Simulated assay, not measured.
Amino acid sequence: MLTFRQLETFRHVMRTRTTVGAAKALRVSQPAVSNAIKQMEGQVGFELFERIGNRLIPTPDAEEMYRDSEAIFSLYHALTHRIESRRNSAAGNLRIVCTPPLANALAPLAIRNFLAARPGVRVSLDTRRIDGVLEAVETRSADVGFALNPPTRDGLVSERIAWGQVVCAFVPGHPLENKLAVTAADLQGHPLVLYEPQSRLNLMLGEGFVTERMRAEAVAEVRYSTLACLLAETGIGVTLVDSLTAMAGSRYRLTFRPLHPAQPVPVCIIRRDGETGKRVQTAFLDDVRRSSLLDGLMGFGDSYDY
């Protein structure tokens, strides 16, 4: 069977028509090229060139071999280009999974900025609840996850990249608009849109801000903070959302105020513990860490210094 090096030598001889020219292109000696051609002829069982003076004239069989071999070199050069692109993190596949607040606010712009200089990268983006995000990273159906305040799980590592906070959201002109910050006492008497019991935001608020009485008097219960904002837009009640959801493209016709005392929320990357990520994954996460997209999360909703 012919080796790739033999085919490469044959290809250069076909192009230069001399062993001297091929040797120069390959940076080997002229006798090495002559010996390689003789070996090829012995292996294939027929002559490849007619020797006329210092020139090598390809036989019809050699011409056909040359045309057939070009497909091999095309694939080789394509592979070399892809390897080079991967080395520069300009190609590859990246699978990202986020909880809805991160999918709505962070992921689209982060992906856009990353792909702007890397047209060869293909991104898969999925959004799931926190248990689904952890499972996707754990089972390798995703390379990396993003979530707010994720629980710990063996085999996974959570890295905080920013702090957000919980803010109060209500329609413009609401009485709470006069507040610099909203306390639990300020919410008394106002219809509330809250979260189902096992949601991460509900569990965080349940540590001291939202009372059982407030939960009992809630006018609506939702799963996602985006839905909470949509309901609040209708004016049926006041809601509490993470600042990522609140600042996502200024898409909600709502006014926001921070809570007092502040209710911070960690924004986290989730990866498999002890593993070195793909080059494209590492480059993307470095981009996110350096990004200004998360600036202002902790202060979002502040109307004055207080």
Rank of each mutant, 00 (worst) to 15 (best):
E212W: 09
M214A: 13
M214C: 10
M214V: 10
A216C: 10
E217Q: 13
A220C: 08
A220Y: 01
V222R: 09
R223P: 10
R223W: 13
Y224P: 06
Y224L: 13
S225V: 11
L227T: 12
C229F: 07
L230T: 14
L231G: 00
E233S: 08
E233F: 03
T234L: 02
G237I: 01
G237C: 06
L240V: 01
L240E: 06
S243N: 04
T245W: 06
T245M: 14
A246T: 09
M247G: 13
G249L: 08
R251G: 09
R251Y: 11
R253E: 15
L254W: 01
T255G: 07
T255P: 06
F256W: 09
P258E: 04
P258R: 02
L259Q: 04
L259V: 07
H260I: 05
H260S: 15
H260Q: 14
P261V: 12
A262F: 09
A262I: 14
P264R: 06
V265P: 08
V265L: 12
V265F: 06
V267C: 00
V267P: 02
V267D: 01
C268N: 04
C268K: 00
I269V: 15
I270E: 00
R271P: 00
R271T: 00
R272H: 03
E275I: 09
G277F: 05
G277A: 14
